[in-house]
Amino acid sequence: MLKIEDLTVSYDGKTLAIDNINTEIKQGEFVGIIGSSGSGKSTLLKSINLLVKPLSGKVYIDDVDITKLNNSQLRNIRRQIGFVFQDYNLIEKSTVIDNVLIGRLGYKSSLKSFFGLFNDEDYESASNALKQVGLSKKMFERAEELSGGQKQRVAIAKTLCQEPKIILADEPVSSLDIATSQSIMDYFKVINDEKNITIMINLHDVNLAKKYCHRIIALKNGKILYDGEVGDLRDELLKELYSQE
């Protein structure tokens, strides 16, 4: 359902953040992306939904090259692509339910989006999403009143409310303690298992990637060093991956 061909990204037109990457992701895969800081992990995810525009290459979603789409067509495609950020990306002063409803904006006209007009179906979808992450009782609390783990669960619920085919998660547990990190990863696993939603997740913790992911993509200096099953990932490759050379 996702195919990347010869993807190259540069922020300054000279240094390559992503260097000629090729890979394919099937529907329902749980893919962990690992590598040291600056390896290109975040850039890769942001390129998939064109939050970052590639210098060259193609990104196919269900056989459609989204790099060729106009803004209206891209908006429709982005409904299928949820994004969970490291810093939660919530409106702190708004209630939990209002934050989750943002996931429905891609289905609204520009006018309705501007005024935040949601119907009963939208509220039911948001309520169900919060139930899936165990936050129904927090629905009317403000986001700023929540713990870090709860905020990330709200962010996941917002993405679920979007009804995506794929969720891109950029270091979603890096600022959380070990127990909370595992709890968040458990939610991603349930979403993947029960809804067959494709998960692509950037992780600093290789052990978390090994525990939860079906497949690992390892990046170094913007290139793929490894792309395969978790069981085939060797210690020698990890040493090379995180070496400073």
Rank of each mutant, 00 (worst) to 15 (best):
T180S: 15
E145A: 15
R79H: 02
E121D: 14
F114C: 03
D98H: 03
T15C: 01
V100S: 02
S127Q: 13
I61G: 08
I102N: 01
L219N: 01
I97W: 09
I21H: 08
F30D: 10
A129E: 05
I191L: 13
S39T: 07
L237R: 04
Y88S: 07
Y187Q: 11
N119T: 08
E145Y: 11
K220Q: 09
G57W: 08
G40H: 04
V84H: 08
C213Y: 09
F85H: 11
S175P: 05
P172Q: 05
L69G: 02
L237E: 05
T67E: 12
F118I: 10
T198Y: 11
K93R: 05
V96W: 07
K14A: 03
S175Y: 01
G231L: 15
K131T: 09
N192Q: 04
K195D: 14
E229Y: 01
I201S: 10
G231I: 14
D63P: 04
E121A: 06
L90E: 03
D205A: 00
T15H: 00
L225D: 03
K210C: 11
A17M: 09
S183L: 14
R104T: 02
N202S: 07
I18F: 04
N202R: 02
K223N: 04
E121S: 12
T198M: 13
I61Y: 15
E92I: 03
D227S: 07
S110C: 05
M139T: 13
K158D: 03
D6I: 00
H214M: 11
G148W: 04
M139Q: 13
E29K: 13
S94G: 00
